[in-house]
């Protein structure tokens, strides 16, 4: 059986990279004493996967892990044991049982929602004022960093929702194995639209608030509800 659990990566540990977060979860699972399943082979590791890597520097409110258990475990017990075994900075919020044939998290993932907190009120005002104009454009150009170098691309089809309020930008952006719009790409495009020179630093705290898939009707819905 597998257990999917929703967890948090809070401000204090936001600079921890994904590989280190994975290891922290593995060690949490080991501390929990839960009957987790191990891979075979030379260096056995715990069978746990994650819906998506979260960038260094970003917080996550509803990140998702998928753990293969060696025997039946009640989700409530899983939650209790894990919360006794994880640092307070990485609390688990929910857990549910999924069938072995339930698709892998990465296969279901379509998008993510973000709360982008802008540190400078002046910049926030300018950026938010530019949202509608930018979304009215036919194309929104942004620079994607890839292995082959920098590449300009149109991110408009990758922005599913975008609105601003106070010092926050709320965005839902594509996140699949094929096509992804990172918050940084969105910000670059918005700076452009707001007339903020590219070299001007815009400090923002990235909080990923939800990981989304598609429900039966093709609507975006939290991955943990699918």
């Amino acid at each position: 059986m597998r257990i999917q659990a929703v967890f948090e990566k809070n401000e204090r540990v936001r600079h921890i990279g994904h590989l280190d977060i994975q290891r922290a979860v593995q060690r949490g699972l080991r501390r929990s004493g839960l009957p987790v399943a191990y891979s075979n082979g030379f260096n056995p590791h715990i069978l746990v996967s994650f819906a998506s890597a979260l960038s260094t520097g970003a917080c996550g409110r509803r990140e998702i892990m998928d753990v293969t258990m060696a025997e039946e475990v009640e989700p409530a017990l899983f939650l209790e044991k894990m919360n006794g075994a994880m640092p307070p900075e990485m609390r688990l919020l929910e857990a549910r049982r999924v069938e072995d044939r339930h698709p892998a998290l990465t296969a279901l993932l379509k998008a993510a929602s973000y709360d982008l907190t802008l540190r400078d009120p002046g910049q926030a005002e300018k950026l938010i004022a530019a949202v509608d104009a930018m979304m009215g454009q036919d194309r929104i150009l942004a620079v994607r960093k890839s292995k082959s170098g920098l590449k300009e691309c149109d991110i408009k089809p990758l922005i599913y929702a975008l609105r601003g309020k106070g010092s926050h930008l709320y965005a839902t952006l594509a996140l699949t194995e094929r096509e992804t719009c990172k918050p940084g790409m969105l910000l670059d495009a918005m700076k452009n639209a707001a007339g903020i020179p590219p070299e001007e630093e815009v400090r923002m705290l990235v909080i990923r608030t939800a990981l989304l898939g598609e429900d039966g009707e093709g609507r975006l819905a939290p991955l943990e509800s699918l």
């Binding site: 204090r12 540990v13 600079h15 280190d20 520097g57 640092p87 900075e89 540190r119 400090r203």
Partner: peptide, 19 residues
């Protein structure tokens, strides 16, 4: 703000299990 700019910010952030 400084932590956003340095390499290896976790050197300075603590919050480890059992700390």
């Amino acid at each position: 703000e400084m932590l956003e700019k340095v390499q290896k910010a976790p050197r300075y952030t603590g919050g480890e299990m059992n700390a």
